[in-house]
Amino acid sequence: KVLVLALYDYQEKSPREVTMKKGDILTLLNSTNKDWWKVEVNGRQGFVPAAYVKVL
């Protein structure tokens, strides 16, 4: 399983997205889209901007 680090806070803007806080460790589920990556955080799955996270 691939983990990513949240570099910035992100507030979800649609039901398909998830909120994350800077420093959160998320599970990367899909990174085929260069702009939006699907992650799991706190038991929820959704998209975050790829530029806001870094693969650990």
Rank of each mutant, 00 (worst) to 15 (best):
K1I: 12
K1Y: 15
V2D: 08
V2R: 11
V2T: 15
V2P: 13
V2I: 13
V2E: 07
V2H: 14
L3I: 08
L3N: 07
V4F: 05
V4Y: 09
V4W: 04
V4N: 01
L5R: 09
L5H: 05
A6M: 02
A6L: 02
L7W: 04
L7M: 10
Y8M: 13
Y8E: 11
D9W: 04
D9Y: 04
Y10P: 00
Y10C: 01
Q11M: 14
Q11G: 10
E12Q: 14
E12V: 06
S14Q: 08
P15R: 08
P15Y: 12
P15L: 11
R16M: 15
R16D: 14
R16S: 15
E17Y: 06
E17R: 04
V18E: 01
V18H: 04
V18K: 02
V18M: 15
T19Q: 05
T19P: 07
T19L: 03
M20V: 12
M20Q: 02
K21R: 13
K21P: 01
K21A: 10
K22A: 14
K22N: 05
K22H: 07
K22S: 09
G23R: 03
D24A: 09
D24L: 05
I25W: 05
I25N: 03
L26G: 12
L26M: 12
L26C: 08
L26Y: 13
L26A: 11
T27Q: 13
L28C: 05
L28F: 03
L28T: 01
L29V: 15
L29G: 02
N30F: 09
N30Q: 13
N30C: 11
N30M: 08
N30D: 12
S31A: 13
S31H: 13
S31W: 13
T32C: 10
T32I: 11
T32R: 13
N33A: 11
N33V: 06
K34G: 11
K34T: 10
D35G: 10
W36H: 04
W37Q: 02
W37F: 09
K38T: 08
K38V: 13
K38N: 08
V39N: 00
V39M: 02
V39L: 04
E40P: 00
E40V: 07
V41R: 13
V41Q: 12
V41G: 10
V41D: 05
N42W: 11
G43V: 05
G43I: 04
G43R: 06
G43N: 08
G43Q: 10
R44L: 08
R44K: 15
R44M: 09
Q45E: 14
Q45F: 12
Q45R: 12
Q45H: 10
G46M: 05
G46S: 02
F47T: 03
F47E: 05
F47S: 03
F47D: 04
V48Y: 00
V48N: 00
V48R: 00
V48T: 02
V48Q: 00
P49R: 04
P49A: 02
P49Y: 02
P49T: 01
P49Q: 02
A50P: 05
A50H: 04
A50S: 11
A50I: 03
A51I: 11
A51Q: 12
A51F: 09
A51C: 10
Y52K: 06
Y52R: 05
K54Y: 15
K54C: 12
K54L: 15
K54T: 14
L56W: 11
L56N: 04
L56S: 05
L56C: 07
L56M: 09
L56I: 11
